[in-house]
């Protein structure tokens, strides 16, 4: 089938086959050397690819680790439905964690400001979940082409007892000799998709026919225009500002997160080839639709210092 197309006649691996093999190697290294790994599953396209690679890496065994979703309670409804469907179909051990303190305090993206909301519901929620289960390695789907501080991060990225990243003191990581040693309480974030680009991800999804959340495909959806972004009215909790009225537009998402913080783009791309075609002609990067990255220069780096991802 498609695999024949991946392997060219000279028996030399193609670009995507190399990336696939590299990611599988990284995941196997985690399982062989770490005591209690977990895979962070954000339900997006990168997580879908990472999960697909994990199924390959350990076949015929199931991936020997649970998948963890940190649920802020503000995810798109279609994401949650997709999460349930995928983990049931693949027979995976799913852990869903929500920061109960944050819920009790009623922390939301509207009244508390972006950085407090992100810090409490995402960063703090993730730290709670990792500490509660005592995970010593967490696989994440971040890519180096996403953002400048990620371009500098190791594949095996060490975290202190307090989940802090020290960008100026990263372990050297030559060849593919990953150092997984750590003391009790310390942990490692591992990024098997480090060397993939957004285009590689979509191309691979297309070749391997990997299911993704339907929100990536264009459809008529109710949106409001807010702060230069198109925000989808996914449920009745979105407080409308004076003068705002939801209207139906044909939109899709390049990246998925909390619905009040994720901008849609107007698009007619309702198939994978159309998405790829749109990307070839794209003039904006995918993180443009992320409000979280906008609160100042180096904001991703600051969040990572605090233990976000």
């Amino acid at each position: 089938m498609e695999r024949d197309r991946l392997l060219d006649t000279a028996q030399r691996l193609t670009h995507l086959q190399r990336l696939e093999a590299e990611s599988i190697f990284i995941m196997r290294e985690v399982v062989a050397e770490c005591d209690k790994p977990v895979m962070l599953y954000s339900i997006g396209k990168d997580s879908s690819v990472m999960l697909h690679l994990a199924m390959k890496a350990f076949y015929p065994a199931k991936p020997p680790f649970p998948v963890l979703h940190v649920d802020t309670t503000w995810k798109f409804r279609e994401m949650i439905a997709f999460r349930e469907e995928v983990t049931a179909r693949l027979g995976l051990d799913l852990i869903v964690h929500t920061n109960a303190d944050g819920v009790r305090q009623g922390i939301n993206p509207f009244n508390h400001g972006l950085s407090i909301y992100t810090n409490v519901m995402k960063t703090e929620g993730l730290r709670q979940a990792l500490d509660r289960h005592g995970f010593d390695a967490a696989l994440g789907g971040a890519r180096r082409d996403e953002e400048k501080s990620r371009a500098k991060e190791r594949i095996f990225s060490f975290r202190s007892r307090h989940h802090r990243w020290d960008p100026k003191n990263q372990r050297p990581e030559p060849w593919k000799l990953y150092n997984t040693r750590k003391n009790k309480g310390e942990s490692i974030r591992v990024f098997p998709l480090s060397n993939w680009t957004e285009f590689d991800i979509w191309q691979y999804i297309s070749l391997e026919k990997i299911p993704v959340v339907p929100l990536y495909f264009a459809k008529e959806r109710p949106v409001v225009r807010r702060d230069g972004m198109l925000i989808m009215v996914d449920d009745e909790r979105l407080p409308l500002r004076p003068g705002e009225r939801p209207e139906m537009r044909k939109v899709r998402f390049r990246t998925l997160g909390c619905y009040p913080l994720t901008g849609a783009i107007e698009s007619d791309a309702d198939t994978l080839p159309a998405i790829l075609q749109e990307m070839v002609r794209a003039r904006n990067s995918e993180r443009q639709g992320r409000m979280i990255d906008r609160d100042g220069m180096g904001s991703m780096e600051r969040k990572k210092l605090e233990g976000y991802f």
Binding site: R5, T14, H15, L16, Q203, S206, L207, L276, Q277, V280
Partner: peptide, 14 residues
């Protein structure tokens, strides 16, 4: 045209 483009992308080495 896109298909041809994508096939060319697949054949590229790194």
């Amino acid at each position: 045209e896109l298909d041809a483009y994508l096939r060319a992308q697949e054949k590229k080495d790194l």
